[in-house]
């Protein structure tokens, strides 16, 4: 049987696990966890606490910091650029996530067939994810620029040419498109794993009852993919709120403020203008926003049934 159902069927009562692990294995499990814990502590927890502290300071990195109270936060709430950045980041998430997720599911369905050479196709769609985001940004910038490949192609086809990165309303969709291109294959992998965890007998039973492919998708596939969907949506929404590298390489927030997404604004304030306190306050607020969005997603999925196939 498949991965998911095995996990479910061998589940033990919780107390039993706790007791047996603690007593019989002693310190060993903790030793295994230790290296990752150190990594998380050094590169996640301590910097996160540092950001909280710095957000209460005026600090330009060069002279000694001074206490600022909550003034950095007050400044964020009165800063039209911060608001603009948050709004276009939400717009970016909406451009990015639905399309990317739907495409990933469709790709997973297509690649879940047993056909000769399928492994090659699966690998092909994952390759963009393996590329460096910065390299991806550079190459796509070459393709999208007015003298670039895409516009030459459009010209040959006698279609109107668009200055993708030089037009306010196209720049952000262009960046979103590049990120969809890069990340769809990666998300597809999770859906593919999820699909393979759905027992074949459910489809056989549905076919006996004469269910159409569409019916099968909506009543079997999608409900059983829900845990995968939850994981993919939560990680990709968080990643999407934090979009930075492609913007940094392709547009630097421009033209005008069209792609000045929140994380780029943080970067610019912190590492180009050296307003460390203000940038930290911006980061803390982004953290709160992402936390709220993630909790909402959890709440949404909690109210939906998940099927225990054990």
């Amino acid at each position: 049987m498949s991965f998911d159902t095995k996990m479910l069927s061998t589940r033990m009562p919780r107390e039993k696990i706790k007791k047996s692990k603690l007593t019989s294995q002693g310190i060993t499990p903790y030793l295994f966890v230790f290296p990752s814990f150190v990594g998380v502590l050094l590169f996640m927890l301590i910097p996160a606490i540092a950001v909280l502290v710095i957000s209460l300071l005026h600090w330009n990195l060069l002279s000694s910091p001074s206490f600022a109270g909550l003034s950095n936060y007050t400044k964020v709430f009165h800063d039209p650029t911060a608001l603009h950045s948050m709004l276009i980041t939400v717009y970016y998430v909406l451009l990015n996530i639905p399309l990317q997720t739907v495409l990933a599911i469709i790709l997973a369905l297509l690649l879940n067939r047993r056909l000769p050479g399928m492994a090659i196709f699966r690998a092909l769609f994952v390759i963009p994810w393996l590329a460096m985001p910065v390299a991806v940004g550079v190459v796509w910038q070459w393709i999208l620029q007015p003298t670039g490949m895409l516009d030459s192609l459009l010209q040959v086809l006698h279609l109107p040419q668009i200055d993708w990165l030089g037009t306010q309303h196209w720049a952000l969709p262009a960046v979103a498109m590049v990120n969809i291109w890069q990340w769809t294959g990666y998300n597809m992998l999770f859906f593919l794993a999820g699909l393979q965890g759905i027992p074949a007998y459910l489809y056989e039973a549905a076919e006996l009852d004469g269910a159409s492919p569409i019916r099968k998708f909506f009543t079997i596939t999608l409900p059983l993919l829900r845990p995968t969907l939850l994981f993919v949506l939560i990680t990709s929404v968080i990643g999407s709120f934090q979009v930075f590298d492609t913007v940094y390489v392709m547009t630097q927030g421009g033209p005008g403020q069209a792609t000045n997404v929140y994380n780029f604004y943080i970067f610019q304030e912190g590492f180009q203008f050296f307003h460390m306190g203000f940038a930290s306050a911006l980061s803390v607020i982004l953290f709160v926003v992402i936390l709220l969005v993630t909790l909402l997603q959890f709440a949404y999925f909690r109210n939906r049934t998940t099927y225990d196939l054990s």
Partner: peptide, 21 residues
């Protein structure tokens, strides 16, 4: 050429921040 990028630096600097004062 403006296409190099630093994520590491942000993490680095913030850890540095603890000791920098």
């Amino acid at each position: 050429k403006t296409w190099k990028w630093i994520t590491g630096a942000s993490v680095l600097s913030l850890t540095c921040a603890v000791t920098a004062c």
